[in-house]
Design a protein around this nucleic acid. Sequence first.
DNA 1: ATAGGTTTTGTCAAGCTTTTGTACAT
DNA 2: ATGTACAAAAGCTTGACAAAACCTAT
Lengths: 293, 293, 293
Amino acid sequence: VETSRLRIGELSRRSGVSPELLRAWERRYGLLDPVRSPGGLRLYSLGDLERVRVMQQNLAAGLAAAEAASAAVRAAEDDPSVTARTPSVAIAELAAALEGFDEPRAQMILDRVLAETTLDAFLSEIVMPYLRGLGDRWEAGDVSVVQEHFASSVLRGRLLGLARGWGRGIGPRALLACAPGEQHDLGLIAFGLALRTHGWRIEYLGADTPLETIGDVADALQVELVVVSAVAPQRIEGLGAELRQISRGRRLAVGGAGAEGLGATAPDVLALTDDPVREAERVTALVLAAEPG
Amino acid sequence: VETSRLRIGELSRRSGVSPELLRAWERRYGLLDPVRSPGGLRLYSLGDLERVRVMQQNLAAGLAAAEAASAAVRAAEDDPSVTARTPSVAIAELAAALEGFDEPRAQMILDRVLAETTLDAFLSEIVMPYLRGLGDRWEAGDVSVVQEHFASSVLRGRLLGLARGWGRGIGPRALLACAPGEQHDLGLIAFGLALRTHGWRIEYLGADTPLETIGDVADALQVELVVVSAVAPQRIEGLGAELRQISRGRRLAVGGAGAEGLGATAPDVLALTDDPVREAERVTALVLAAEPG
Amino acid sequence: VETSRLRIGELSRRSGVSPELLRAWERRYGLLDPVRSPGGLRLYSLGDLERVRVMQQNLAAGLAAAEAASAAVRAAEDDPSVTARTPSVAIAELAAALEGFDEPRAQMILDRVLAETTLDAFLSEIVMPYLRGLGDRWEAGDVSVVQEHFASSVLRGRLLGLARGWGRGIGPRALLACAPGEQHDLGLIAFGLALRTHGWRIEYLGADTPLETIGDVADALQVELVVVSAVAPQRIEGLGAELRQISRGRRLAVGGAGAEGLGATAPDVLALTDDPVREAERVTALVLAAEPG
DNA sequence: ATAGGTTTTGTCAAGCTTTTGTACAT
DNA sequence: ATGTACAAAAGCTTGACAAAACCTAT
């Protein structure tokens, strides 16, 4: 099917990798296996160009050349199955199932996705994008209250299932709760799962939690990090004093779009507005940097 | 199964007692008996930390050091281990774990109970009695909002985990939802699980669902039974017209203490006030009797 | 399945721990056990990165290095949910536990998997693949009779635990039994569980059941579906007459590899040779199609 | 509480090998 | 185009060391 045949100079120009290096990669790691012209010139396909690009990405990600090459070769071999199931397709299928009240089908899709990816990827590439899309469609009136209800309920069950035992272990404790009045807890649960993969112990208080009692639990359990989540800024506004109280002696973070409600009132409160997985990584790195032996 | 092994410095930091004094207490009163590292360092367990804390309390209470120590040792020896065989003991342990924010322990207790009994017994002899007790203690002011929050959250996760896939199959469909404004969903989930063990297919809409959308879904999915749940009668009062609308062409039941809010307005609406498991059995028998194949 | 292999420099960059220290932790505490490149360079997995992170958490929690490391190692070993994200890994762990006669660990792995997936996925992606692998290894002589016995016995107990109450309810009745002489019942139990998740009521007669008994029970209970299971075709051969007798007035299926023993003698007998979960779905759809309300 | 000795642990160095991009000769 | 060479960068092993933490005994 492939028609274009590139000579090494052209492949070099398109990829930005010198001809010598391309030959070295071929000799040393078998990255490419070009056909030859009658005169012995290497002839590459567009697939080979793609393979070189993957190699470059792996290098940029910090892998050493040998490992980068073998990963690129493996990726190329797995390619067909990869193209069959992209995240966006899975999200669309999930949306169709959930918003059509087809729980069995939704569970099956979740099963399949979980079996094929890591928990991190599941959260940041499936769950969170879907939730954002759901929110958008809800605002646009394309999704009814019941659909949103139903979808949340199924996802909540699934995430809490994955959360089992997240309070155990030896790592530092993080206390998670939704701000008073806040009912959206899925993003917070996802954040808790991501934190868990970094060794944290999670204490989870759920939706709509009074601030003062958050403080009580934080004191009682000696948690090192408190995360208060809210999707609407007004849930946070005016809570500066209480939040400052809670943050005494520990790190405090506010998650979700509601973090904007903080304003400049609390400079030492961490705002978590990005993807839960990435924020979990950031918070962990921060804590590790602050308290080395 | 004990994991953490603390060196004397860390034990000192966590207890506030100087290393020298800790060693003195060990030598003089045998308060602690730490294992040793290959090089001879003392290694303490978290139980030892607890023992030191008891010692401190005894001192603060005015006991002399020798007496304080022997009392602490005796207290540690009396410590009840994990042996719950009767439901009431399991419930008490569960309450202690949940209301002490000890999720891992709660999950372990739930694991054990579930492994030893049927789902029905689990629901009617553990979960529901515990929820009733929790409600009572909450009204009496013995349980804080947060404790109730936390306990519900853990149980919800667990029950929803058991609920996976309850929407599919060959049985008749039942639609479950909490009345508008009603947040207590655990009893309803328990009822759904019990129904499921009788072969029903469950569609679950969760807490605080508008009545009209319940009707919409019931029509769309052709359910045979609709269950609206409420713990407070006022959530149901005044909804007679809408309920009668929903019950057209299908069976309608109202669950929870809120069923009293019905009064005599709707004689054909089933009131489910008993244990969810027994009520699930009753409803199933009723439907079987009405539609003999 | 693991793709990325990091050299020590990259692991250092991602974890923030110096290469020297990483090597020291490996040498002194066995924290990591990297594979080596042909030239002797250490190659780490992403799981190793996670282990380093947990080590850092433990250090931050105040543990000394030796204790922090052993806790991190134990955490990684005790926590299948962390290491066993993919089915193939979970199966490998299960095999190691069962064939090493470590029942507690096997139960723990089963707990975890069951908590994180649906029953269907558990059966079709864990149990059945494991059983197939076990059979292969047994034929190859890699597994002893005792190991096979032990593994089957643990799994049987677990599956029968899940089967509790599968005989009651509102759905149509299915009668399950192994053919005369057939001892392998696990696949049949799995099929029963899958049927149950579709709302069927299951009557289970177990291994090595005389055909006439099957017929008697089928008549007495008015079952709608009879499933006879056999892994060896010869268990079925020559039973054509009796089977035809049983199938009178109801649907009859033969499950397992033994279904081939049917030959063309019984055209109306359903052969179930695929995955139990898929077959349960197929049978249910068939019955639904044949008897629409 | 102090003194004097031991263990633990992070860091560094020396000397050698492997890896890898680039250069050069044929 | 091929094959070889080469040098910088990154790793490996062994060994050592000093600060911090811990031990016993007085």
